[in-house]
Simulated assay, not measured.
Amino acid sequence: MPRHLLMRLRAPLVAFGGETIDNYGVIRDFPALSMVTGLIANALGYDRGDFVSHDRLQARLVLGTRLDASGARLVDFQTAQLGDRDEAWTTRGAPETRRGGEDSYKSPHLRHREYHAGLDALVAIRLEGADEKPTLEDIASALDRPKRPLFIGRKPCLPTTRLFVDMIDADDVLDALQRAPARDATDAANFRFQLPEGEGALRHAQWQDICDERNWKSGVHGGWRRVLEGGGSRSPGRSL
């Protein structure tokens, strides 16, 4: 059976980002493929400009998620009066400044940011080309000893538990997620899943087309990926 890595995404605030429109940063129910790619790349110490390594890592990832607790949605309204000499911290090592002419500093900087409060997600990943670097073992080691600080979606979302959970041999992503223990039978009955096509089937689920793959050179998301979202026990028969 193929080997899978289990990763726990848990923090007081989590942001599984969706499409940002103007100053509104919305969230999705499940982590995007690009978000998990970026988190792992950050742990491995990839340079932000190493587009080839990011694209290859994203292409190799087979990713599924189990929501152990969905949490509640919170909207944070952010306002700050910034001057032309004010700088913000960034993960790329270069300070961020506000763009625009003199008039851009006369009004406050406004943002609306959605977050998940109290969310607890278990992620199972498998790498196509298992012997290619980085391996799952490399990723597990990097998650425990990351090259840079890790966050779950946005900079304030610092994990409150160890990200790496375990390695597990399983038939597919759903099998890996279902083999991971639950706190009790009630929890297991309420789990929600998101699975890539061909990685398991559930009795109460629907197909969704999502756009969560990033072109790391342009910074733009594109294309569509088919996933299964829902809950319940495994559907009998062959995976769709």
Rank of each mutant, 00 (worst) to 15 (best):
E114Y: 08
P146S: 13
G101P: 03
T79A: 13
G83L: 02
D76R: 14
V75R: 14
Y115R: 03
D68I: 04
G101Y: 00
F77D: 10
T90Q: 08
W89Y: 11
W89D: 14
L119I: 01
P134M: 07
D120S: 03
Q81V: 02
A69H: 12
L150K: 15
V75D: 07
D86A: 05
F77K: 09
K106V: 04
V75E: 10
G101T: 03
V75S: 13
R92K: 13
L127S: 01
G118R: 00
E128C: 14
D138H: 15
Y105H: 02
S107C: 05
S104R: 14
H116R: 00
G100S: 08
E137A: 15
Q78M: 13
S107T: 15
R99D: 10
A140G: 12
R111W: 10
T135Q: 03
P146G: 15
S107I: 10
R92A: 10
G129E: 09
P146A: 11
S141R: 11
K106Q: 09
Q78T: 08
L143P: 04
G129V: 06
P108M: 08
W89C: 08
D103K: 11
E128V: 08
S104H: 03
I125E: 02
Y105R: 07
R145Y: 11
E132H: 05
L136T: 06
D103Y: 06
Y105W: 03
P149T: 12
D131M: 09
L122D: 05
A72L: 15
G118V: 00
G71T: 09
F151P: 08
V75A: 11
P134H: 01
H116M: 03
P149F: 12
G93N: 08
E128H: 09
A140D: 11
Y105E: 02
A72W: 06
K106L: 12
H112E: 09
A88C: 10
I139P: 05
T97I: 14
Y115L: 01
A130D: 10
P134T: 07
L150N: 14
K147V: 07
T79D: 12
V123K: 06
H112D: 02
H109S: 08
D131H: 10
E102P: 05
D84K: 04
E132Q: 08
Q81Y: 00
V75C: 15
G101F: 01
S107Y: 01
L110V: 06
E87G: 01
R145Q: 11
R126G: 12
L143T: 09
E128M: 11
D138A: 14
G93M: 13
L119N: 00
A117H: 02
S70T: 14
R73M: 12
D138P: 10
A124I: 01
D138S: 02
V75Q: 12
G100I: 07
L136E: 07
A88D: 09
P149V: 14
V75M: 14
S141Q: 10
K147G: 15
R126V: 06
L127G: 06
D131W: 00
R98T: 06
